[in-house]
Design a binder for these strands. Structure first.
Lengths: 135, 135
DNA sequence: TACCTGTCAACAATTATTGTTGACAGGTAG
DNA sequence: CTACCTGTCAACAATAATTGTTGACAGGTA
């Protein structure tokens, strides 16, 4: 990410570096707010707006993906390999899954004039933790 | 819908009847705001809150589906048959598509403890109108 | 008739996100 | 070395979608 920012002529500031670090290898699909909360712990003066800005920039550069899972807030995903998601309807937790969606194609009539760019498969269910707590 | 409301002991008021009528046979996947705008035309005093309330109640009763397509607002879908969606990334238009998602299953290890209730397939692309306007 | 519950509009509040502004820091040209 | 210029970020304000609260009222019930 540092390299990509430099390549785009953007400065690698402490704020940005911090957000990069928080996302790197993070499979929790955090919301902007979670990233902000985590960032504050080491940099209390960082503003929520800055976090949004960095996340937005990273998406622009294709370094992260954003997903909507129905929890009200956008989720940020540093995993940009081809994958899909499994969402807990109770707590909003998101897990990555790898399925072959290539069979999901539409006939010409079904496409109704759309030009298709991507297919997303979302599995909804209840995670182990929430299932246990339901008892 | 009228029957379901009556069966639940809820009154079928003019406001509710209006929302029912606006949704019936509506394949446009309207947002709460579009429903509100349409409702106002025949009942100018209806409040946005009431529309949200009716939509929420209908979802509770399983008479409509709600979907998140990444346009920022919830979309309401009176089509409760098994179907999936095709979303225009430019204008947010949503079309129904019928694909067989039964092949989309997860191995035990991929499920990571989740109990899966549903699978959603979302196709993203650009609709004919937006493609034309892009010229 | 008195009551009780459900209903809905007006108003306010909340959450997620974006826009605006001003000060400041680092690099660059002279 | 200095003036400048651009990018940056925090504080503040604004917006959009949605939900909570309240009070009045209407229809059914005892």
């Amino acid at each position: 990410m540092v390299d990509r920012f430099r390549a785009e002529g953007l400065k690698v500031t402490p704020q940005r570096e911090l957000v990069f670090r928080l996302l790197h290898g993070n499979f929790a699909h955090p919301s902007a707010d979670s990233v902000f909360a985590a960032a504050r712990k080491t940099m209390p003066m960082i503003s929520l707006k800055t976090v949004y800005q960095v996340l937005h920039d990273l998406r622009e550069l294709g370094e992260i993906q954003t997903i909507e899972v129905g929890t009200g807030s956008l989720r940020f995903d540093p995993n940009i390999t081809d994958h899909h998601h499994l969402v807990c309807s109770v707590c909003g937790r998101v897990a990555d899954v790898h399925v072959d969606a290539s069979a999901m194609t539409l006939s010409r009539s079904q496409r109704s004039g759309f030009e298709i760019d991507a297919v997303e498969v979302t599995f909804r269910g209840t995670c182990a933790t929430c299932r246990t707590e339901r008892l």
